[in-house]
Amino acid sequence: MSVTMHNRPVKVNKIRVKRGKLEAREARTGLIFMIPWLIGAAIFLVYPIFESLRYSVSDVKANGLEGGMSVTFLGSAWNANYAGAFERNDFVQGLISYVMETVISVPVIVVFALIIAMMLNQKIRGRSLFRLIFFLPVIIVSGPVLSLLTGDGASSLTVMDTQTVTTAISSFLPPAIADPIANLFASMVTILWYAGVPILIFISALQKVDKAQYEAAYVDGASPWEMFWKITLPALKPMILLNCIYTIVFVSSNDSNALILLIRETMIGSADTGGPDLAAAMAWVYAVVMLALCGIFTAVFLGRKDPYEREAKKTDRRMKRERRTELRIQRRQGRRAKRAHHPAAR
């Protein structure tokens, strides 16, 4: 028996069910709540994004002083801009180093945020003050403040001598891997600053974990270490994913990101060095790479299903199969009965 949640008429055991008044009303209120946002998003987000997709497969030329631009579709050579983007050495290099840095720094940020959140969830004196200070970086990382700070070199650990760490790493690792790690150490403070929102999200999740679970585990003789792995971490799992995605987005769409600066430069640049079409193609490549990164993190964290859920699904499937066989047998018996009643029909 399967009832989908959609409003289309659904077949349930051959009975046609029309969509009910309640469902229709719910759909209507849903739309009413959505409409303002939808209009805003459609005009200023979705349409521009699709326009830029069109630019990326077209030849865009600005029409001089009178404004406006001519957009002509490239036809069969639609991927010329994408090819152009990949011919740009600075773009490809930037993309590679962006991927390496993100893959390394996002887990660092999230794990750091988790550790800090666990500590801030303990009973310590001055806890609210600590929480305040750890959330504070949120107002630092975006905007002009960060650029001022990085400009002054305040974002690298001048206190710690990172040079020794860097040389030690590069001595036994190939440069392709060693460089991002060295960068990681060089920008350690920036990374800590990115952890503001993740820490907050983790704390709110931690406070919702049922205390009774810990008590039950304690009674059963579990150590704190086991409790962390068996209770805390599973409870935090959805939030870990949320934080990973949030951090990827935050790091990637930051104004000081080198790739974004490159895209902006290309867009404003003249026709021979770039132009809006090439910039649009770059932006799409960048967006796809970001999406892929998020997909990888999602796969890592949602890959293993709950054993209970898996078992439930299996049972569900088996029951469906049994039901089908039952129906088949019923039908067969019906046909046989018919034949028995009207032997002449043969």
């Binding site: 830029s52 630019y55 987005v249 809006p276 932006a283 967006a287």
Partner: peptide, 13 residues
Amino acid sequence: IAIMFVATAVLIP
């Protein structure tokens, strides 16, 4: 998708 998209790139549209 809109989250992932670079805001700069939609400037002209």
